[in-house]
Amino acid sequence: MTTSGLDVRFVSVAIDGRRILHGVSLTVAQGEIMAVLGPSGSGKSTLLRVIAGLVAPTSGTVAIDGADVTTVPTHRRGVGLVFQNNQLFPHLNVEGNIAYGLHIARMPSVQRRERVSELLTLVGLPGFGSRDVATLSGGEAARVALARSLATTPRIVLLDEPLSGLDHDLRYTLADDVRRVVRTAGSTAIVVTHDPDEARRIADRVVTLAELSSDTR
């Protein structure tokens, strides 16, 4: 079957003999935002890491836009991942972080700067380029991490508990912002979370990890 978007089939992962994912299958259409719900420790992060290529599945395949990428290394997959604790590079400022992927892709510096300011405006942090990442608040760091992942216009954006560690009110404001930003960027996205409200606010479609698993022994 050739489809645009993401197609994950019967992915199982076992680490040190412990089974973490049990034959997970899912399809996300081009431009769709999907949320995967599941309790802590259920393997949501592992699913994203398999899609990003950071973890090799024990069995099963991952296809993007109809092409099997199961054995393609992370840096050639074109999959963006927003990590749970943002993982902004401490030795670079906000602009350096957002421009990182563009720098790797050898975009000329004039265009790079334009793209960074465009992204900063998109995530609601215009003028933050020269800030040191250590001085950012939790919400600001989450926005910068989102902008960094979107900078290279990846085919798929994965968000791993993007709003964890933020206080309640900020979570919902930011959830709306995340939806707006991902929508504007036109990306296909998967967000994993344990919070159903957050999932509904961000995503077009909400599923639980248990529903996706075919083999729940």
């Binding site: 990003a52 074109g78 993982q87 992927g101 290279t152």
Partner: peptide, 27 residues
């Protein structure tokens, strides 16, 4: 130095050598 810096760089398109030059080495 967390492994996730390396992983973050990889998701942004950096291969092993770029990752070393732009993340591991500066840190």
């Amino acid at each position: 130095q967390p492994f996730t810096y390396d992983e973050a760089a990889a998701t942004l398109g950096a291969g092993p050598i770029s990752r070393f030059a732009t993340v591991t080495w500066p840190l």
